[in-house]
Design a binder for these strands. Structure first.
Lengths: 165, 165
DNA sequence: GGCTTGCTTGGAGTGCGCTCTAGGTCAGTA
DNA sequence: TACTGACCTAGAGCGCACTCCAAGCAAGCC
C-alpha cells in the first residue's frame, strides 16, 4: 500500500496529479480505505456508502477484494467533499456525477448545476458574515459586562434589552 | 392582530425595538403565529416545536388560546434563527437559552458559548471561500468548453484530467 | 346557518446522511 | 500457530430537525 504522503491533489481543480502518465494506471499509487478515510475526513462507512449509492465509480480491488483507491478517486472525493461541506445535498451530488458519466454533451448541464450551487454558497457566505457581526457585537457586550460586574451589580435595563434575547 | 409592517427588530443586536416603553407591555404589538412564520421564515410547526422544547418561553395567548408573539419573542427568534442558520445545533441553542434564563451570573458562560460558535462560523466562512474558488474555476472551464465545442469536437486529454472528477 | 380559514393539541411520521451490526476473510507479527 | 487489526458484505438502526396528522375550536363573511 502506498504511503499517504505522496497523495497530491490539485486543490484548485480538485483534479488529480499523477506521478506517472495517466496512460499507465498501474503506476498510479493505490490507497486503502483506511488511509483515504484519514486523508479525507470521511469515515470508512461513508466511503463505502458513497460507492454503494454511485457517488464513486466502483473502486478497484486487490485480489482479496479490498478497495484500492486511485488518485482519480481521491480527486473526485476531494471535489465531492467540498460540495458536501458547503451544503450540497447528496442527491444533487449524484446528479452531477451522473452528468460527468454521461460525457461531453453534459458540459452545460454540469455548469448550470455548479452555478446554482455557487449562488447558494454566496448566500451562505452572506448569512455567515451577517451573523458574525451579531456575534461580535454580543460577545463584546458580554465581555464588557464581565469586566464591569463580575459579581452582581444592579441591572441597568439597557443591558436587559440588548441581551435578553 | 397588529399588521406585520411595524415589527421592527434591531438587526445588529437582534434586540427588540418597542413602540411603547417596555414598562407598558399591553401596548406592545402582538402577532399571530402565521404572521411570525411569514416574517421569520420558520414554519408554524417549527415555531410551536421551538416553544414546546423550550427554545421560546411560553408565548402569551389570546382569550381563545391563540398564540400572541411579542416583539421580545420576535427578537429572540431573530437571534435564534441566525444561530440556526449558521449551523448551531438546536441542543446548543437550548443551552444558550437556559443560560439566559439563569440570569446575570451566566454572562461569561454565554459569552464562551458564542465565542465557540463564532469560531465555527469562521471555519465555515473559510470553507465556503475555498469552495467558491474551486467553483469559479470549474464554471469558467465549462464555459470555455461550451463556447469552444457546442457539439462534439475531439477531446484534448487535459480537459478530461481537469473535469473528470 | 353554513362555509372558509387559521388556529389548537399530543403524538406519530419523514427525510437525510450517515452509522453501526453481525458474521466473516485476510495480512502481518510473535 | 495464534493473535491482532484492518478489511469485506447486506442490511438494520439512529439522530437530527423538523413535518404532518387527526380532531376540534373560533372568528369572519355571505
Amino acid at each position: 500500500m502506498a504511503t499517504l504522503a505522496p497523495i497530491r491533489v490539485d486543490l484548485l481543480t480538485c483534479g488529480e496529479v499523477f506521478d506517472a502518465p495517466d496512460t499507465d494506471p498501474d503506476r498510479s499509487p493505490r490507497h486503502s480505505i483506511g488511509e483515504v478515510a484519514t486523508a479525507s475526513g470521511l469515515s470508512v462507512h461513508t466511503l463505502r456508502w458513497y460507492e454503494r449509492i454511485g457517488l464513486l465509480d466502483p473502486v478497484d480491488r486487490s485480489y482479496s477484494g479490498r478497495r484500492l483507491y486511485s488518485d482519480a478517486d481521491l480527486a473526485r472525493l476531494a471535489f465531492l467533499g467540498r460540495l458536501r461541506l458547503t451544503g450540497m445535498p447528496v442527491a444533487q451530488m449524484l446528479r452531477y456525477v451522473e452528468l460527468v458519466r454521461a460525457g461531453e454533451q453534459t458540459f452545460d448541464a454540469r455548469r448550470d448545476l455548479l452555478v446554482e450551487h455557487r449562488e447558494e454558497v454566496r448566500q451562505k457566505l452572506a448569512d455567515l458574515h451577517a451573523t458574525l457581526a451579531v456575534l461580535d457585537y454580543k460577545i463584546d457586550l458580554y465581555s464588557q459586562l464581565q469586566a464591569r460586574s463580575p459579581a452582581g451589580s444592579q441591572p441597568d435595563g439597557q443591558t436587559d434589552r440588548k441581551l435578553s434575547a
